[in-house]
Structure formats: structure tokens, C-alpha cells
Design a protein around this nucleic acid. Structure first.
Ligand SMILES: [Mn+2]
Ligand SMILES: [Mn+2]
Ligand SMILES: [Mn+2]
Ligand SMILES: [Mn+2]
Lengths: 219, 219
DNA sequence: ATATTATTTTAGGTTTGTCTAAATTTTAAG
DNA sequence: CTTAAAATTTAGACAAACCTAAAATAATAT
């Protein structure tokens, strides 16, 4: 269907649309995909020709419905493979992203649907991100970033914004894992660092880290 | 490490060396890989530069030790993935080859070794072909082609020469599966077709088919 | 031994996806 | 409103892997 490069652009545009609003800029894509702006421009024209994005010169792009569904298919594959790697092959959650980046490009509808069944149709990947079903639909699990919480508030750690290996290894070291109950003990006014508490320990995290931790059932 | 194209050439040269002797010709490779002889020549030079093959103009190639080990790694991955697809995802043996052709190029030592463990270190793939271990070693299971058997001889069906989907679907239709006991009832002198018998039925196969069926414990 | 045929290699292109450097357009500042 | 800076696009190249057509070499047949 689409080439690996095309699939990577679709996926990237999709997540950038979610993170920053629609109308994703050339430079933003170049940054995420670690390529040069001129290469991005080339690819955007190609994607526009295939009706996967709407592209107006100097104006950035946004996905068409076809583009959105195609992006969701790649994301579905990525996240299902991550589940497989963690649940079946005993990988740690910080080791699976790069492998899934390769596996997500394997072309076979039958494969991914059988994998889905084998994993018992998981709804979330090892990083707490929702897995689209075969039609591109996901459950919506609304969560709140710690950086938006007030002193005294608590919730269950259910997701990360940044699922890079570096960040996940940091969380491992600090003994923070999905499912942990986390409470905000104090917020330092000077640098907005957060003092948080889990069942087992207390620690201080920078506002940068706080932004990257999502909790649900916050109260 | 090596590109997909390079890996495919290595694998192809390896199997051609096995099937016909060493010194594999340009045209033979072109035929297997469905590409043109001129493209093969280009690639052989590239592989020779990387010391994966020994190449002398107009003389064909053969794998170096490095080339042989690299080829075995790709074959190991291919066959382990085929096992996974059949044993865990319930694919039929005639559906897995093309998917494994893609999966075999995923780069991660950890992945393939964990997959090996998950599958309990299988020694044979779904087509009866031996799976190299992490060091490139395989069990040797000597078997005999039906086309080399005499009337009255019998054995256990353990492998196929051609594992194309077309041939495997033919075997499905004829109700022949790995593990079946097969006996040669008669050989037609006119066209060398074979009358064979399993526990459940009798059938006639052409000499072409007979060449593609391997039995062990023949007596 | 020579001529014919088959095989292999070379020469020159194409496509995909990338790059650098230069030109253009947009945005931000004064 | 005009200019400087930042973002984006164009122009021209490049590497990988493929192609066709032509040239070179090897194998075969007379
Ligand atoms: Mn990931
Ligand atoms: Mn993930
Ligand atoms: Mn196969
Ligand atoms: Mn096989």
C-alpha cells in the first residue's frame, strides 16, 4: 500500500495534529522525523497527490479522512506489536519502541488481526496509549497531566506523553510504573517542581517530568 | 547491518549453493530473486566489497564464511517467524512464507532470541526445514525424496523441497501433511508417476511432485 | 576452428527518499 | 510601513536498487 517513509510521515502528522492543533508545519515534522525541511516538503507533495493530506504552500498540512485512517492503521500495528513484545516476549516497556517502529511496517491485514486476537484484543499499549481497532476506533481514556494538578490531588498513573527509552528508563529508576497511585504533596513556586508520593516512596520531579505523566481518576 | 536487498541475496545464494553446488551463476540468482541479470551483477560487486561473497567476473559467486553466517541468520529469522505464525497465530503452513519474508528483515538480536525462547527453541519450521540456532548450527535430518524410492518402500513425510503456497495448497487438497506415513505402491514406467498410499487414502502423484516430497525412516 | 548462441557485464536511465545551498515567502521587529 | 529574521520551497545532487539496450565473454555446435 504505502511505503515505510509515507507511513512514518502519516503517523507523525497524526500525532503532531493531536499535540499541537491541526495545520502541522514543515519544520515540526522535520524535527520529529529527524530529516530536513526540504525533504519534508517533497514528501508532503507526494502525500497530497495521494489525497492523504491537504497541503497549501507555506501553510502546513492536515490529514484527510483517508490519511487519518491510514495513520491509525500504522499506529494500531505499532501498539499491538508493543503489547506482544512486552506481554509475550517479556521485553521491558522501555525496550519495545524501536522494534515496533520496524514491525509496524509489515504488510498483512490477516497478521495484525490475528495478532490482535492472540493478545485478546488489548485496548491500551504498554505505555498507556489507546490501540485503535480494525476500524480505527479507540476507547477514550481521559487523563490529566500532573502539571495541571493542585496540591493534595491524587490519581492513578496511566500514561506518558513521551515514551522515549530515555524517559521510561528514568521512570524505572525512580520506581514509577503504570498503575501506581500518585499524590501531589507540594509544588515549589520557584521552579514549579513537584513533590509527589506513591504507596512506597516520595520524590521530587521537575515540571518537565510532571508534564509527561498522565493520571486518571484525579481528585 | 545489511539492507533488505542484501539479505535477500545472501539467503538466495545460500539456498542455491545447497541445491546446485557452489559457484552460483548470475542467471540462477536472477531467476530466484525475480530481477534482471544486470541488477544481480551490480549487487554481487557490492556483496564482494563487503566480503560476503567471492566474485570473479563471468564465474559466478560463492559465500565467504561471513556471508554464510549472515545468510543463516536471515534464514533463522525467517523460519522462527514461520513457526510463530503457525503455532501461535494459527496460520496455515501455506500462508506464512510471504509474511515471514517481511518479518525476517526486522533488526534486533534480542527480538529473535526471545522469540526463539517463546517458541521453546523449535528445531524445524512448519515446512520441515531446520532452524539454525543463534550460532548458525542446525540439526541434520536426512531424508529421501519419494522420487528416489522403490516400490514397496515407506517412510514418514517430513519435508518439502518447494514450499511455495501453490504447492502447499496442492498438498492440502490431496490431504498430505507432515508426519503422515507414506508408502510407494507402484511406479508407472511410462511417465514415472507414483502411486502412493497413506493411512487414509491412495493417490497418484507426478514425478514432479514426487521429487518435492521428502520422507525419513524409509525402508 | 569458426560461427552461432547463451550468459554476463557495462553504460546509461529511472524512482524513492534523502541532502545542501540558494531563492522565495511569511512573520516579527523597529 | 519597511526591514530583518525565520520558515518554507526550489534547484540540483546523491545513493540504493532497480531497469533496458548494447558490448563483451563464454559455451556450444557445426
Ligand atoms: Mn512506541
Ligand atoms: Mn507505545
Ligand atoms: Mn518460507
Ligand atoms: Mn519454511
Amino acid at each position: 500500500m504505502y511505503s515505510q517513509a509515507e507511513e512514518n510521515y502519516l503517523k507523525t502528522i497524526y500525532t503532531l495534529e493531536k499535540d499541537f492543533g491541526n495545520e502541522v508545519s514543515t519544520n515540526l515534522i522535520a524535527g520529529k522525523i529527524k530529516t530536513k525541511a526540504s525533504s519534508v516538503t517533497d514528501m508532503l507533495k507526494k502525500l497530497a497527490n495521494k489525497e492523504l493530506v491537504v497541503y497549501k504552500k507555506y501553510q502546513g498540512v492536515y490529514l484527510t479522512e483517508l490519511g487519518r485512517l491510514s495513520a491509525l492503521k500504522v499506529i494500531r500495528k505499532h501498539r499491538l506489536w508493543e503489547c506482544f513484545l512486552v506481554q509475550k516476549l517479556q521485553f521491558n516497556w522501555d525496550e519495545v519502541h524501536d522494534i515496533a517502529e520496524q514491525l509496524e511496517h509489515v504488510k498483512s491485514e490477516a497478521l495484525i488481526n490475528k495478532l490482535d486476537a492472540f493478545l485478546k484484543f488489548p485496548k491500551l499499549d504498554p505505555h498507556g496509549d489507546p490501540i485503535p481497532d480494525a476500524h480505527g476506533r479507540t476507547i477514550l481514556n481521559k487523563s490529566v497531566s500532573i502539571s495541571d494538578m493542585k496540591i493534595g490531588a491524587a490519581g492513578v498513573f496511566v500514561g506518558v506523553r513521551d515514551s522515549s527509552s530515555t524517559f521510561l528508563k528514568y521512570l524505572n529508576k525512580k520506581n514509577l510504573a503504570l498503575g501506581d497511585k500518585i499524590k501531589v504533596i507540594d509544588i515549589e513556586p520557584f521552579d514549579s517542581s513537584y513533590h509527589i508520593e506513591t504507596k512506597t516512596h516520595r520524590l521530587v520531579i521537575t515540571s518537565n517530568v510532571a508534564e509527561n505523566l498522565y493520571l486518571k481518576n484525579v481528585k
